[in-house]
């Protein structure tokens, strides 16, 4: 009997090797271990054995059973895995294949993207986002900003005027929002005002009559030029990395005193000098200054008590620099081939 049991085990181990289908395996197992299976058939004869012998055979039978079950389990596991793999094989998808029909994606205008990035930075520093009309009064666009009607500084900005409304202009900068914000919200004030501006100049790859700026203003007691430098450095570092430096040079704007133009380390060459920065290592991206006392007065703020700074980033310029856009006219072209790139 012992021999029979051993043979039974060998037979199973031999057969199980050849079966790969999980269901066939199940059948095979039943054939050996089932109620009417081969093992039971052998065991039926066990009654005829002596007690000692019976114990020995019983133990062996158990061992054989366990071996068969273990071998079955292993084979079954393998078989199932193989079957899954086979299925995965014929259900395989070429993951590199494009989606058919192609599904487009929407895109925000690059100016919107850069504007939102800056808005988020400024709101995180406690600045409010202000807004103002684009068709503006001459008074807010010029006069209140220390540019009276006869001032030669008016020549610095070519202006679109409106037929039948001698007092109106298409705003030439976002600076009128300074006055509106001071009058509306009072001081202390921290605000930025992104927006569209207009200059009456012919368009070419570098000039557009329509462009975007981001104006900013901070007014409180004791605000200094060093504060202005600090805030603008933060902005520059946010835009171009923590090693970015800010350089300021004197520049005349009638609504600030002192007035500066601001340059930042060229992000492309890190200040080494390259084509982008015209070999200077610096990129001019903003104008700024301490708010002129007469501008504060126009905003209803007492210049004896308060001081402040204002700045204006060329949003359009930032966008062109960021993406390496070489023709400003694309921005307002509405050309899908352009817009889809951002």
């Amino acid at each position: 009997m012992k021999e029979q049991l051993r043979q039974l085990k060998e037979e199973f181990l031999c057969l199980v090797e050849k079966v790969t289908d999980p269901e066939a395996l199940e059948t095979l197992k039943t054939e050996f271990l089932g109620r009417k299976g081969k093992l039971n058939a052998i065991m039926k004869e066990m009654a005829s054995l002596a007690v000692d012998e019976r114990r020995l055979v019983g133990k062996l039978a158990n061992e054989v059973k366990e071996a068969i079950e273990a071998s079955y389990g292993e084979a079954r596991g393998k078989a199932e895995k193989a079957k899954k793999a086979e299925k995965a094989g014929w259900e395989r998808i070429d993951v590199t294949q494009p989606i058919i029909p192609e599904r487009g994606t929407g895109h925000l205008h690059p100016v919107t993207q850069v504007q939102e990035e800056l808005e988020d930075l400024f709101t995180s520093m406690g600045f409010m986002i202000a807004d103002g009309p684009e068709l503006e009064s001459d008074y807010f666009n010029f006069t209140t900003l220390n540019i009276p009607p006869t001032h030669p500084a008016r020549d610095m900005q070519d202006t679109f005027y409106i037929e039948g409304y001698p007092g109106l202009v298409m705003r030439t900068h976002t600076s009128p929002v300074q006055i509106r914000a001071m009058r509306k919200w009072g001081v202390p004030l921290r605000m930025v005002a992104p927006g569209r501006c207009f200059r009456n100049e012919s368009t070419d790859p570098r000039h557009e009559h329509t462009f975007h700026q981001l104006e900013g203003m901070v007014i409180d007691k004791g605000i200094s030029l060093a504060h202005m430098k600090g805030v603008l450095e933060r902005v520059a570092q946010h835009l171009y990395g923590k090693d970015t430096k800010v350089r300021m040079r004197p520049k005349f704007y009638p609504f600030v005193e002192p007035g500066v133009n601001g340059e930042v380390t060229c992000f492309l060459c890190k200040g080494e000098g390259c084509r982008l920065c015209k070999k200077t290592g610096w990129l001019e991206i903003f104008g700024a200054g301490m708010v002129h006392p007469s501008v504060l007065r126009e905003g209803g703020v007492d210049p004896k008590e308060y001081s402040g700074f204002a700045f204006g980033f060329g949003l359009t310029r930032l966008v062109m620099l960021k993406y390496g856009i070489d023709d400003i006219r694309h921005l307002e072209s509405g050309d899908i081939r352009f817009l889809k790139q951002f």
């Binding site: 406690g126 600090g230 805030v231």
Partner: peptide, 16 residues
């Protein structure tokens, strides 16, 4: 202007 050391202004914490 290069010799002016930058500072950050301080403000009360108020949401914009």
């Amino acid at each position: 202007y290069d010799h002016i050391v930058s500072q950050m202004p301080s403000f009360p914490i108020t949401p914009p």
